[in-house]
Amino acid sequence: MLRYALSRLTSLAISLAVASVVIFLVVEVAPGDPASYMLGINAQPDTLAALRSELGLDVPKITRYFNWVTGMLAGDFGMSYTYRTPVSQMISDRLWVSLPLALYALGLAVLIAFPAGVLAAARRGKTSDISVMAATQLGIALPNFWFAMLLVLFFAINLRWFSAGGFPGWSYFPSAIKALTLPAVALALPQAAILTRVLRSALLDTLHEDYIRTARAKGLTRRQTLWRHALRNALIPVLTIIGLQFSFLLAGAIIIEQVFYLPGLGRLVFQSISQRDLIVVESVVMLLVFAVILVNFLVDLAYAAVDPRLRSRA
């Protein structure tokens, strides 16, 4: 088990290293010099040089890369070109909106998908199965940001149950959760539809396995075999999808923030793009990628918890 975890940890480190190189290289090819962009066309050469050295732009690229990476490892993401404030400070507030939103949505998606998927598989071909499948077909086709607009129209503008947007901060937990609820629902439903279908078909696949017949021969009812034998085996493909969905949810969170005027990473990154504040973009992207890779590492560990064959292998 330890060896498996170590091998996954190694591949996590390699993925992160390669991702950082890719991101750095892409941003490096950007035309233009941030320092002259910040100071405008009338900048004096010596002020320019001073700013360049302040921003760490006057050293070779390879050194800059290592400075960037070591800085990030120490929690220092550099200075924003536009606001001259530490990027880490700008990001950390925003991250505590986007990340909880994505996780909230993931939780909702799983909570919806599990009962729906199990119900559909257990009652295959019956009315409940057909209606669940029809609903998921619609759910998959739903663009989350449009669905979010409909939710605002209905629950905020018409019914006035929720406010149409904004975020009160985490100091008062219930109202923070309330502010994130509509966005999380909008994000979660389409993903829940996908997860339901995956769970259903994984369950139906496992229900054809020989060991299910063995379990039935032992005297287990259909329902008992589903819960005791099929569900855990079906979890393996479902975990893969959950891992993938997290990255969609994180990206989706950035889009949804626009609908609800949430002060998350999305706002920050789109602002930074328009202001060509590349160091902020670079850092946010790196952070997003880090989150995705980390979640996939956790999914790998979850595989091992489910499947003894993985634990015994190196």
Partner: peptide
Amino acid sequence: MRGNDLIFAFPSLVIAILITAVF
């Protein structure tokens, strides 16, 4: 396969953000 895993860590939106930021 490793390259695939790596790309999976970059959702379309993130790639679009990177490209738009640059070009």
